[in-house]
Design a protein around this nucleic acid. Structure first.
Lengths: 145, 145
DNA sequence: ACCGTTTTGCGGCTGGTTTGCAAATGACGG
DNA sequence: CCGTCATTTGCAAACCAGCCGCAAAACGGT
């Protein structure tokens, strides 16, 4: 993939096996993946876990990959689609960890107003939704009040 | 404070020194506090760090305390005010960690629509804002593009 | 093919959080 | 006021995601 090569060149980085393999894994999976999961998908034999960590950090810095935090103490990563700019959020099932991508986003004008009111600049936000997916809700009718 | 006692009773929990002390610390501070900070405020002599962790977990489960995640790998806790139901969010300076409470929240109707569309129930969300506070912005004019 | 720079693998280490276990403590009935 | 029993605490060790240093291996441009 030329895009990877180009991005790496621009940062004087090298096109290595692990890097390509990691992006390939992310390309195959459409959900945020944890370092550990990527490592497992690569085959622990082929690449050290530390290398996975380092590369995701690097790729994130180059904007090829986006980091998500679901609050469980594990960072997850998704491939940033071609020319894609804006971020998106997720709806996560608290039971089975099913992840659904969500296009809703916090209203831009509200965010700007908020920033202005407090004099903050360069404002961003982190937003994730949690709930019980249909499958899990069916399997567990009423969670015992 | 009878509310603490009542809540503890309801869960067959005991009213212990550390528990009261922890709530007292949270009552005095209006910002989310990390376990370590609470421990320090208590005087490391008076209560073990592990106890702080355990109690915050317990208190969270009883709804007396609310957990916040600012994405730095450290959980923070705030006292839930009397009869307070709704949560609130925070605006955090990425430079100096200044925390401002914000009343803006993700639009209820959008969240409901989102849940309905995907068949999710019991939906909640986690939302925090990040940016550069006025002080830090002044101290660091242009973050070098 | 050569050389300088970047990466990798490996082991060790950090910092937040949890757990096992024996001793201490709170709740409650007598 | 005291004994009993479940809960809680302190302590230390275990855990876990993530990070670091270093020597060896891989890459890119010549």
């Amino acid at each position: 993939m030329g895009e990877l090569t180009a991005a790496l060149r621009k940062h004087s980085r090298k096109v290595t096996g692990p890097r390509q393999a990691i992006l390939e894994v992310l390309r195959r999976h459409q959900h945020p993946l944890a370092n550990r999961e990527i490592h497992r998908a690569l085959g622990p034999e082929n690449c050290d876990l530390a290398t996975v960590y380092r590369n995701l950090h690097t790729l994130e810095g180059m904007g090829l990959v986006r980091r998500y935090d679901f609050g469980d103490g594990t960072a997850r990563f998704e491939l940033v689609p071609e020319g894609e700019e804006g971020h998106h959020h997720h709806l996560i099932c608290q039971q089975c960890a099913l992840i659904v991508e969500v296009e809703e986003c916090f209203p831009e004008e509200l965010e700007q107003a908020l920033a202005r009111r407090h004099g903050f600049t360069g404002i961003t936000h982190r937003l994730e939704f949690f709930g019980l997916c249909p499958r899990c809700a069916a399997a567990r009718p009423t969670p015992a009040d």
